[in-house]
Amino acid sequence: MLKRTLPLAITFIVGILMVLDYFVKIPSLNTSAASIRGWMPLVTSFAVITGTLNLVAVHSDRIRHRRPGWYNSAALFLFLAVTVIIGLSKGTTAPLYRFLYDKILIPCGSTMAGMTAFFIASASYRAFRATNADSTLLLISAALVMLGRVPIGEFVSNEMPSVAQWIMDVPNMAGQRVFLVCSGIGFMSQCLRIIVGLNRAHLSGNE
């Protein structure tokens, strides 16, 4: 009973407290809500430990059974150990720690972010095929926007940048706002059901 009732009760009390904190200015209530928000990094830290234990379990199993690519798991353990040992012993501002972060992790991330441009090109190529009325409309509007955003567009017609801006500001913005409003209503509905305990997907699946 406690495994279900207690989390639901805590969710309800904290949920209502946070909603009241947003609308009402009562110092004691606002302080309590701020304190609870301050606990979030603590909870997240414990959750990271749980996740790291899973990482260790999955990759040690791969090394033990010499599964394909097991040496990648060994490299993961090596860098995990080095990062944790340096971070705990010398702090996160130590030159070696900064080297691992700034010279390895960040460049790897930037490389992947840069590759997104190529993925946009290949995905656009498939999406912009004029196979029906909708995709033809997409192709025309995308071509106009792209032309309006590069110098050659202005060379073709002086009106091209204005047309591109109109497409972005009017039909595109209208569509985006529909998504925003509908998603926002969906968010509110989902939060309400979680607070009152009608959505319990996080407690071992749907009931």
Partner: peptide, 21 residues
Amino acid sequence: TVAQGDVYAASDEVVRGAFLR
């Protein structure tokens, strides 16, 4: 696959419950 510790804990519980069902 999950990217956050809290999502891992919840997903693990959800999958365990689903397999049991």
